[in-house]
Write a protein that binds this DNA or RNA. Structure first.
Lengths: 238, 238
DNA sequence: TAGCAACCAAGTACGCTGTTCGCAATTACG
DNA sequence: CGTAATTGCGAACAGCGTACTTGGTTGCTA
């Protein structure tokens, strides 16, 4: 074994000796993406992806050593579909736009959060994305550590907001209609929680809060990112 | 079928009619927690947990309708092990402490992020935690929407910071020693990335940044949370 | 006290998963 | 041309979650 490279991006897509492969890595990624988008991440099995490609199951292992590598391919391909806008030169607007792009991406493909949580995508599109992120904060600071912190804070905020919004959304979708009905469906438990007096604040907030009822989905992100940018700006040297 | 309740917390732990169960929900949770802590979340299988309890595999389904409910039990039990400190009355300090607790919890048990990502824990400990979170921001605002946003922003930040730190950590652990060696191990790929000139900022940052080399693990969180709190404070009405 | 409904533990089995192995076919280099 | 490398793929395997069934135990009720 001629010490293979550990990550897929370090391996050549195909050797120069054998017959030419029936598919490409991009086709694998596209097929897996199609399945994940339409049927969820759980439906992305080797057999399902192979069927989508019209190929044998174990043939996939000619392109990928592992299922996790297939997920890597998917993540990178998903990142490849977003094209960063031109920079305005004002770091605040650019960083906000980048965070918004990240947030939108995670809302559109909920499975991405679960998929990429294990390890970051270091494929070509991931690197391009990293470069773009760094370029947005280039005007804010020249210190590399500072730059990493800034883009780290922004992207982790986008991740958190997206996952929270998603959780809220499907919690509401889980049972059809209004929140009152949802609480009623919980029956004695929901009632006891809200009326037992053990959680007075929670009860008050659950009853009075309007966000889960009326506000558009991205309110939490839109409001929060502005505050975060305020905090960043206030702490910037110079 | 007398319309069973959908969530486990709404079901009584045991009926009053039959023989007394050999175990309790807490024992299930503790066993699963033990497995997850020592062998990772992937090792938490029904068979493994049953073996840990010294019980039959399918007996677990007397306590739990689903494996996901076992995960719910685990998440709630993990939350039960942290005890919130007494409030100081100053919301900024209290919210920072709460976020820190959340961050520490997720660092100590990395699997929690993956486990609880699907749906939030609404068990007794989860509710207690929610109540505590709300109490920290009670002094900052009285508007329920505002309160939810504040604790949401804080916890999502803790989640994001923990998962990013974890990713960094195990990326470094993946290959033994220094970052130079890691890059070298990537071989031609790492070199080409850094020297190709396609990603100049990324190359510069990778070479010059000191955070991944020397800084303690929680720097990103510690620095970031302060900025977030600044942003919150600056935007508070009154 | 007798009977019966409710409840528990456990074994068996099914369908699904990711993955290894072996084999035939195909291509490029010396 | 022959040899070595590479590809597609069917068969097979271990492990997973869990539905079903059987047999034993408990406690209310008549």
């Amino acid at each position: 074994m001629p010490d293979e490279h550990p990550v897929i991006w370090a391996r050549p897509e195909r050797g120069s000796r054998g017959p030419k492969p029936a598919h490409t890595r991009d086709e694998l990624a596209a097929a897996a993406l199609r399945v994940a988008d339409s049927e969820g991440l759980d439906a992305v099995t080797m057999r399902r992806v192979a069927a989508e490609l019209g190929s044998g199951v174990t043939s996939l292992y000619r392109y990928v050593t592992d299922k996790s590598e297939l997920i890597d391919l998917m993540s990178d391909a998903a990142l490849g579909e977003v094209d960063p806008p031109a920079l305005t030169g004002k770091w605040r607007a650019d960083l906000r736009a980048a965070a918004g792009l990240c947030y939108d991406l995670l809302r559109r493909r909920p499975w991405l959060a679960a998929a990429g949580s294990s390890r970051p995508s270091l494929g070509p599109n991931g690197l391009r994305w990293m470069e773009y992120l760094l370029s947005t904060v280039e005007g804010a600071t020249a210190d590399p550590d500072e730059m990493l912190t800034l883009i780290g804070v922004a992207t982790m905020f986008a991740h958190g907001a997206a996952s929270m919004d998603l959780a809220d959304e499907q919690a509401r979708r889980r049972s059809g209609l209004t929140d009152e009905q949802w609480m009623a469906a919980q029956g004695s438990y929901g009632d006891s929680v809200l009326t037992a007096g053990r959680y007075p604040l929670l009860a008050k907030v659950m009853i009075e809060a309007s966000i889960p009822h009326r506000a558009p989905g991205d309110t939490r992100f839109t409001v929060g990112i502005e505050r975060l940018l305020d905090g960043i700006e206030a702490n910037l040297p110079g």
